[in-house]
Design a protein around this nucleic acid. Structure first.
Length: 387
RNA sequence: GUGGGUGUAGCUCAGGUGGUUAGAGCGCCAGGUUGUGGCCCUGGAGGUCGCCGGUUCAAGUCCGGUCAUCCACCCCA
């Protein structure tokens, strides 16, 4: 038997999926976001340049191959890069007006599957371009919060600031200096990170590293004046909207493109993979990918991560139609065509006994059964039963 | 990539120390009730015991390998 590949799942009539999609889309549209869908396959260099060569995602998790035309391509491991590529390709960066997009689709990462981690998974995400105000960050976080609230999912919101090109490099130097002074006590990974991506040491999971890094300089204590001010505005803005948050000074996120505001929504009800949404500001990314400098901010929700937290009702709905004699089938098909203008109608094409029909209608969770037998065919009426 | 748990019917799982035709519950189909579903009763269908190899007179059971799956590390949504 041929089975689905490791870490990949069929989605079959999963009402929770549809509910998440419908809810998130509706709310994003109410925030003024437009629909975008970008290709699953992109040039590999897109992700190398955006997500970052030092990240695990690019280093070891991409479905990457050479296509028949000799192009180095890969299946998208995340959604932002493709949307930014599209934004630039369609010259939206040359217009002055902000542009906001939402998307929903599959992402691919070659990882070892576990709870909340699949090789093909789905993200609902939004990207906002052209708004550099921190108030847009607040809008973006509020949008995510609204989605979780609408889905009745409880969460903890963690926020941090990574600073801007002014303060980040200075902080980085300070941090490197600190790390080098403790180099021998750090784990192998962290020793490597000192040069490759020192910020990543901050959320190292090794206990001994955590001990040492407690005393490390924190970015939030080293922000420039304007970043500091924005971070304060962010916090006040969230309070204004009654959105609870925690400042997590070690929240650095694994993608290289983030600047200033970063945030993560976590749940304590779903196992080790607790991040249900993550995002932040990426003011340099558009420029980095060859567009005109354009600020951006966005997030992505891991759909499979919240699947078990979403409750759907299993209500009876629709009409079941069945015939007891073969001659009655054209009659019910015609009637069904009419009724379908208003509601869901299922037509059983196999003649069965009344009892068998009622049983099937019950099992199929229909709310009403319309059955035609010999008597009904004569009178033109239906045997009607509410279930 | 590393570690641990688990692979027996569509699903959830039983099957001491190897031993005859591999079981249960749920689900499915049919009948009891020939035109009134759900409850109940009766019957039925459904299995390469993950796969390959080894030990043995004999393997679902023991051994090795392999694959899959789950959980954790790591990473991240």
């Amino acid at each position: 038997m041929i089975k689905a590949l490791r870490g990949m799942k069929d989605i079959i009539e999963d009402k929770r999926f549809l509910k998440i999609f419908d809810t998130a889309r509706k709310i994003a549209q109410n925030y003024g976001y437009e629909y975008i869908e970008t290709p699953i396959l992109e040039e590999t260099s897109l992700f190398k340049r955006s997500v970052g060569e030092s990240s695990d995602i690019v280093n070891k998790e991409m479905y990457q191959f050479t296509d028949k035309g000799g192009n180095d391509v890969c299946m998208r491991p995340e959604g932002t890069a493709g949307v930014v590529r599209s934004f630039i390709e369609h010259k939206f960066d040359r217009q002055q007006t902000p542009k906001r997009f939402w998307y929903f689709g599959p992402m691919f990462r070659y990882e070892r599957p576990q709870k909340g981690r699949l090789r093909e998974f789905h993200q609902f995400g939004v990207e906002s371009f052209g708004e550099e105000s921190v108030y847009e960050d607040i809008n973006t976080i509020a949008l995510a919060a609204d989605i979780f609230d609408a889905l009745n999912i409880s969460y903890t919101l963690k926020i941090n600031s990574l600073g801007c090109p002014k303060c980040m490099p200075k902080y980085k130097e300070k941090l490197i200096e600190f790390l080098n002074s403790h180099k021998k006590e750090l784990c192998e990974d962290c020793q490597r990170r000192i040069n490759q991506n020192p910020i990543r040491t901050l959320d190292c999971k090794v206990k001994s590293c955590q001990e040492i890094l407690k005393d490390a300089p924190k970015i939030t204590d080293n922000l420039c004046e304007s970043c500091q001010k924005d971070f304060e505005t962010l916090k006040k803005g969230l309070e204004n909207l009654d959105i609870k948050y925690e400042v997590d000074k070690n929240l650095v996120r694994g993608l290289d493109y983030y600047t200033k505001t970063t945030f993560e929504f976590v749940s304590n009800e779903i196992g080790a993979q607790s991040a249900i949404a993550g995002g932040g500001r990426y003011d340099r990314l558009v420029e980095f990918l060859g567009g005109k400098p354009t600020p951006g901010v966005g997030f992505a929700i891991g759909v499979e991560r919240i699947l078990d937290l979403v409750k759907t009702e299993d209500k009876r709905d629709g009409i079941y139609m069945g015939a007891m004699t073969p001659e009655a089938i054209p009659f019910i098909q015609k009637k069904a065509k009419e009724l379908r203008k208003e509601e869901k109608v299922f037509v059983e094409t196999k003649p069965k006994s009344l009892k068998a029909h009622l049983k099937a209608a019950d099992k199929g969770n229909f709310k009403k059964a319309l059955i035609v037998g010999e008597d009904e065919l004569k009178t033109g009426n239906f045997f009607e039963k509410e279930l």
